[in-house]
């Protein structure tokens, strides 16, 4: 498994890192941390790159390296990773250009086999999409954003599962909310949910929502399967059946003390683009972390 964690700044990325690494550990995943800096106008790319080379000679780090270094140290201090410092390491923070606007970052004198650091410049969605395509990541972890457009673009264009760490407070107790229906992504979502629940050691609330009073065969089958998986994994869980609009019910149940795990929509992408999808609506309105499984 390969996870990609996108960090933005020191102030806002702490919960993202914390949750991301915890989940990654549960999946025994290799982690890459990416920082996407501002886009550089093409009129100036060479000049800017060249100036930055000069700056390196004066021992200034590129903007972003600082954040990556902080992220690395944060993870090391909280025992998520164990870096080893070696004498043969780079004498200063070193950037290796690997195509276009992408750099691999090697920190001064340390190595860590668990984490890669990547520095990119450009539009965040385009950069994440490219990074995911290049690295074949399974899950992309990113902090919540105020912009609605961003959530839409993330779900629409990033070809991996997406974990949006919205408003995560490490001192609060969370439960896991796992909506179950008959869509094709549900089994995988249940699987991921079980892992996450184990990682955080929390209870799972399975929920099946139908628009009418009757629950179809697909729904019952899916929910039975989900319960069985939870039981096998030895995770405390309860299962509820509710009626109403799925999005509203999930939002209401989730509140601000759940981690939501749900499957991605299977709608036609064109349709999704114009009308949105269930996960998107949940993501836009919920005040809690949400993992969308693709």
């Amino acid at each position: 498994m390969k996870f990609l964690i996108a960090v933005g700044s020191k102030e806002f990325s702490e919960p993202t890192l914390r949750v991301g690494l915890q989940v990654a550990k549960a999946f025994k995943a290799a982690v890459t941390i990416v920082y996407a800096g501002p886009k550089i106008s093409e009129f100036s790319t060479s000049q800017v790159r060249f100036t930055q080379e000069r700056m390196e000679e004066w021992e200034f780090d590129r903007p972003g390296v600082e954040v990556l270094e902080w992220a690395f140290n944060f993870l090391a201090e909280n025992d998520y990773i164990t870096p080893t410092s070696i004498e043969a390491g780079f004498p200063k923070n070193t950037l290796v250009q690997t195509g276009g606007n992408r750099c691999e970052v090697y920190l001064q004198g340390t190595i860590c086999k668990d984490v890669n650091l990547i520095l990119r410049n450009g539009d965040i969605i385009a950069e994440l999409r490219d990074e995911v395509r290049r690295g074949g990541y399974d899950v992309t972890i990113i902090g919540g954003s105020q912009k609605r457009r961003m959530a839409h673009d993330l779900i629409q264009y990033i070809n991996s599962s997406i974990f949006v760490v919205n408003k995560y407070d490490q001192h609060q107790d969370y439960n896991l909310l796992l909506p179950v229906d008959d869509s094709t992504h549900t089994p995988k979502a249940v699987q991921y949910g079980a892992r996450v629940a184990q990682a955080f050691d929390v209870k799972v609330n399975l929920i099946t929502v139908s628009k009418t009073d009757s629950f179809g065969e697909g729904y019952t089958k899916a929910s039975q399967l989900a319960s069985k998986m939870m039981r096998r994994a030895g995770i405390a869980h309860e299962h509820r059946f509710e009626t109403g609009d799925p999005v509203d019910v999930i939002k209401k149940t989730a509140g601000d003390n759940h981690i939501v795990v749900m499957g991605a929509s299977t709608k036609n992408p064109l349709f999704k683009f114009f009308t949105g999808s269930k996960p998107l609506k949940v993501m836009e309105d919920c005040l809690c972390p949400i993992l969308i499984v693709k």
Binding site: S41, S44, T51
Partner: peptide, 16 residues
């Protein structure tokens, strides 16, 4: 604007 000229872009690229 930032994109007005290479000079503006260079100082913007410092992140400061």
């Amino acid at each position: 604007t930032v994109v007005a000229s290479p000079t503006c872009m260079i100082i913007h690229s410092s992140g400061l």
